[in-house]
Amino acid sequence: MNDKTDMTTRQEGGALRTPTEREIILRPSVDIYEDSSAIVVEADMPGVAKDRLDIRVDRNSLTLEGEIAIAMPDGMRALHADVRGTRYRRNFSLSAELDTEQVEANLKDGVLRVRIPKRAELQPRKIEVRTD
């Protein structure tokens, strides 16, 4: 699995900005690990609600996107805001050994966990030894 490079420019503080957009796009920190049956990607996306999260798999590409929305209390209107809504975005290339039809995702405490299982025919299996 490889991290793809977006068409972005780096801004102060590590934020990324696309040339055609004015919004700030952050690359979330990720941990990627593998066990015998799957690849797991854990991305730090604090402030992103489930309904503002978009996870897409297209052939051999995984895209994680999330938007931080700052909610205003009912009846209030912002006159000035030092903080704007921000987006997280990260892209990865996926290996052909992964079963992209069985992807699972879970968001808890600002951490998005995406589990991509290996194709069943490529998973290790135990061979039974018989005695005749």
Rank of each mutant, 00 (worst) to 15 (best):
D3F: 15
T5D: 06
M7W: 09
T8F: 03
T8M: 07
T9C: 07
T9D: 08
T9Y: 04
R10F: 03
Q11P: 02
E12P: 14
G13M: 07
G13Q: 08
G14D: 03
R17K: 12
P19W: 02
R22K: 15
R22V: 00
R22N: 10
E23N: 14
I24F: 08
R27N: 04
R27C: 03
V30K: 07
V30Y: 03
D31A: 06
Y33P: 01
E34N: 05
S36H: 08
S37T: 10
V40D: 03
V41C: 00
M45I: 15
G47E: 01
G47D: 02
V48K: 05
D51K: 12
D51H: 08
D51F: 00
I55A: 01
R56K: 15
V57M: 09
V57Q: 11
D58F: 06
D58N: 11
L62E: 12
L64C: 10
E65V: 07
E65H: 06
G66V: 08
E67P: 04
A69F: 15
I70K: 09
M72A: 11
P73Y: 04
P73E: 07
D74P: 11
G75P: 11
M76I: 13
A81F: 06
A81S: 15
D82M: 15
G85T: 07
T86L: 12
R87I: 00
R89T: 05
R90C: 02
N91K: 12
F92M: 00
F92C: 00
F92T: 00
S93R: 14
L94W: 06
L94R: 10
E97Y: 04
D99I: 01
E101H: 14
Q102R: 13
V103E: 01
A105L: 09
R113M: 09
R113L: 02
V114R: 08
V114L: 06
V114F: 03
R115G: 00
I116C: 01
P117S: 01
K118F: 05
R119H: 09
A120K: 14
Q123N: 05
Q123W: 00
R125Y: 08
K126D: 13
I127F: 14
E128K: 14
E128P: 15
V129K: 07
R130P: 14
T131G: 06
